[in-house]
Amino acid sequence: MELTVDTLEGGIKCVRLAGRMDLKGTQSIEARFNAETGALKQSVIVEMAGVGFIASIGIRLLLANIKQLNPAGAKIVFCRPQKMVEDVLRLSGLDSVAEIAADEAEAVKLLKGV
């Protein structure tokens, strides 16, 4: 999998993921994803347009970091997931602990809470 980090307008951080979030793919980005999201205790956009598949191992990684951010009052906003991936996020209940945005502008708004 690929993981890149961007800074958007207003200093908002965006972690972009691409590839298959299966066992192998998730393990390949796990340490960097933790370091770039949960460990920093800051709200972050996770852009998923390039993710074509997610299994429970990928959901676990996302949930673990949401749980780490939550007590610090910070959150993850997921941005542009593909249809099937979004379905799995929702079937896993991640939509009740994080927001899902259709595009970057909406993600920024949700992150700022406006």
Partner: peptide, 21 residues
């Protein structure tokens, strides 16, 4: 139970839940 609040949500056990879905 995927409706639990985030701090009560177990990290594991999702695989079979997704297979059922």
């Amino acid at each position: 139970d995927i409706t639990k609040p985030v701090h009560e949500r177990p990290i594991g056990g999702l695989g079979i839940h997704l297979v059922r879905q």
